[in-house]
């Protein structure tokens, strides 16, 4: 009986001794899963309470952005391209000799390009501004600017552009591009400027 008690005691001690190292090593191992198990359900609860705010938004946000970019780019590319073309169309003036309103060969080349583009873009309506240099009287230059714009319009119409799409206006010598008083400035100011008013 004493042996049995001793054995049990010994066993207990042994077990107790054996348990100690087990306890010292194992507890984190044993405890971590329990902690995880305890925390997981807690997290699930939290997620149910405030769904997607912490985790979803950045994720869905990123994908949304990508989608929208892809969707718009096709239309915008066309729009951007048209804007570029309009910019190019408007950037190029044609020029005239002093007191003249006939289309010079260099101006004809530019007008041909413009007509081509206008025929490709039948929705576009334009305004042609006729301008003069400062020499001569204001009234004569108003009349001259109108003739210049009219020459440019007729040239485009002869190349097939619908006259209904082209408006003209004369600014005479009232809106110089270069305000200086020399031949270089005058040559720049004797011009037709083109503006897209509808597209």
């Amino acid at each position: 009986m004493k042996k049995k008690i001793l054995l049990i005691f010994g066993l207990i001690i042994f077990l107790g001794c054996a348990k100690k190292p087990l306890v010292t090593v194992a507890p984190p191992v044993e405890e971590v899963p329990t902690v995880e198990e305890k925390e997981k359900p807690a997290k699930k609860v939290e997620m149910q309470k405030t769904p997607t705010i912490e985790e979803m938004p950045p994720v869905s946000g990123i994908t949304e952005e990508k989608i929208t970019e892809e969707k718009i780019s096709a239309e915008e590319l066309i729009r951007k391209q048209l804007a570029e073309e309009i910019k190019r169309f408007e950037a190029e003036d044609i020029h005239f000799d002093f007191d003249k309103y006939n289309i010079r060969p260099d101006a004809a080349e530019i007008l041909k390009k413009k007509a081509e583009w206008l025929l490709k873009n039948p929705q576009v309506h334009i305004l042609i501004e006729g301008h003069c240099d400062e020499r001569g009287t204001e009234e004569y230059n108003l009349a001259l600017g109108e003739r210049r714009a009219n020459s440019a319009k007729r040239f485009l119409v002869n190349l097939g552009v619908d006259p209904e799409r082209i408006s003209i206006i004369s600014y005479g010598e009232e809106r110089p591009l270069d305000p200086r008083h020399c031949e270089e400035a005058w040559a720049k100011n004797r011009r037709c400027h083109f503006i897209v008013i509808k597209y």
Partner: peptide, 11 residues
Amino acid sequence: CLVRSKGINVS
């Protein structure tokens, strides 16, 4: 209309 021509008529 008093005067009309292809070119300029003004002032």
